[in-house]
């Protein structure tokens, strides 16, 4: 037991410095950060969408903000946050409803991250391309 614990601590120490909790801790942190980012954006987004109730003059002026190239880079961050939170949420549910899957938690985290990165490659291209065309 003591040996195993020492081994765990040693392993954990070599991986990042903030929490020393290895992959699980980082995915937990990422889930939290993306979640807070999404709900804070949502609070603003409900208000800006509600502007349609005041007609095209009001709504088109508000939505113009989203067409700004710099805002589109923030938009990319938002899309990434939603997709990561969704994929990681599936991993959490898999472990919650099939607790045995916890034994493959690390592999599931790498799998989730791989799917996330694979999804973000074409999405980043599609969102960033018009920004480049507009700026240069």
């Amino acid at each position: 037991m003591r040996v195993a614990q020492r081994r765990m601590t040693k392993k954990a120490r070599g991986f990042g410095s903030l929490y020393r909790g290895r992959e699980g801790q980082w995915s937990w942190l990422a889930h939290r950060v993306t979640g807070v980012a999404i709900i804070l954006f949502l609070f603003a987004h409900v208000v800006d969408t509600a502007m349609v109730g005041w007609g095209p003059g009001a709504y088109d002026r508000v939505v113009e903000v989203y067409h700004n190239p710099i805002v589109k880079l923030l938009e990319l961050g938002l899309v990434a946050a939603v997709i990561y939170h969704a994929l990681n949420g599936v991993r959490i549910m898999v472990i919650d409803f099939y607790p045995r899957a916890n034994d493959w938690n690390r592999q599931l985290i790498y799998g989730t991250t791989a799917v996330f990165v694979a999804a973000m490659i074409p999405i980043t291209y599609l969102i960033v391309k018009p920004v480049f065309l507009e700026l240069f």
């Binding site: 037991m1 765990m8 601590t9 020393r20 909790g21 290895r22 959490i92 916890n102 938690n105 985290i109």
Partner: peptide, 12 residues
């Protein structure tokens, strides 16, 4: 089997 410590547990 060795019971795992909290450190190895990422299940939240």
């Amino acid at each position: 089997r060795e019971p795992r410590t909290a450190l190895s547990r990422g299940a939240g």
